[in-house]
């Protein structure tokens, strides 16, 4: 079953920014990454899903129901962590969390304290006095305390130290194992790579590609660096699938995409000193999609 179905979603603000014709689905039990740089339309998409703003075209369904028409009903099962966490002044953390819980018709206090323990957050403090990272923790607890079936996170890791980030990811993995679907937006690829099954890459308001993380990496180039005892003919590695070939005094570097056997045979036929074969990291793939087409 699809938990989120977005079809041709469009939101324009005058001429400026917005999203254009976005379509993708997030399946039940999936951790779905939504990546793109700042201003690409990630938050706009998420806010439209949550009914904070209205689309100018297209529609979106959550749990099979229209996200505007059945907004208050589907939100019972959604937990949301906004990119910037703001709360009412003069409230204690505990009061804020209780207030948040009071909107859901179930007892959330046990889960609330569990989460506070895991994230090491003092509930008796005033929100005004908290650091950015601690505010973020309040946001995380607030988004998870009612054990939602769909967790939507907008740039969730900003402000968290690496240790806390790890705890947070563990928590998400645990929620995911319990059956929660997760939509995770980010501009940091390594964290998406660590956590997500599939990703959608968004660029200037449009989806550029939608792939499994594994395919994304498979379908791309491998980086070869070969050191040879003697200088090679410059054209030696110039076969089908080789790109960006560079030859410099016995060291050849190139990108290769295609059947690995063909390149391995070429390599086996010569006398080599050393070889490095690298998978490109997501960052490089990402840049590949992000380079302006010229």
């Amino acid at each position: 079953m699809s938990v989120i179905e977005i079809s041709n979603l469009t939101k324009t603000y005058g001429k400026a920014r917005g999203i254009n014709n976005i379509s993708f689905t997030v399946e039940e039990g999936e951790i779905f990454g939504f990546i793109g740089p700042n201003g690409a339309g990630k938050s706009t998409t998420i806010r439209t899903l949550l009914g904070l703003i209205y689309p100018t075209g297209g529609s979106a369904k959550i749990f099979g129901k229209d996200c505007i028409k059945y907004g208050s009903e589907i939100k019972k099962e959604i937990g949301y962590l906004p990119s910037e966490v703001f709360y009412y002044e003069n409230m204690k953390v505990l009061d804020l969390l209780k207030y948040s819980a009071s909107f859901y018709k179930k007892d959330c206090s046990k889960r609330m304290h569990e989460l506070a323990d895991i994230l090491d957050l003092d509930l008796s403090k005033k929100i005004d006095d908290l650091s950015l990272g601690n505010r973020k923790k309040v946001g995380i607890i607030q988004g998870l305390l009612h054990e939602p079936k769909l967790i939507i996170l907008d740039e969730p890791t900003s402000g968290l130290d690496p240790l806390m980030q790890q705890k947070f990811f563990d928590l998400l993995t645990e929620e995911n194992k319990k059956g929660a679907t997760i939509l995770f937006s980010s501009h940091i690829l390594s964290e998406v790579q660590k956590l997500c099954d599939r990703v959608a890459i968004i660029k200037e308001g449009e989806i550029v590609t939608l792939e499994k993380i594994s395919t994304l990496k498979e379908s791309t180039y491998k980086k070869f660096k070969i050191e040879t005892a003697v200088s090679l003919d410059k054209e030696y590695f110039q076969i089908k699938g080789v790109n960006d070939l560079e030859e410099d005094r016995g060291t050849a570097t190139f990108l290769f995409k295609g059947n690995v056997n063909s390149i391995m045979k070429k390599i086996a036929a010569i006398d080599i000193v050393n070889i490095w074969i690298d998978e490109p990291d997501l960052e490089e793939i990402f840049m590949h999609y992000y380079e302006k087409e010229d």
Partner: peptide, 17 residues
């Protein structure tokens, strides 16, 4: 103003309420 709309309006409560 206080940017709490992202808190309140993602709760299961309609805008009319």
């Amino acid at each position: 103003l206080e940017k709490t709309a992202e808190f309140l309006l993602v709760k299961p409560i309609s805008r009319n309420k």
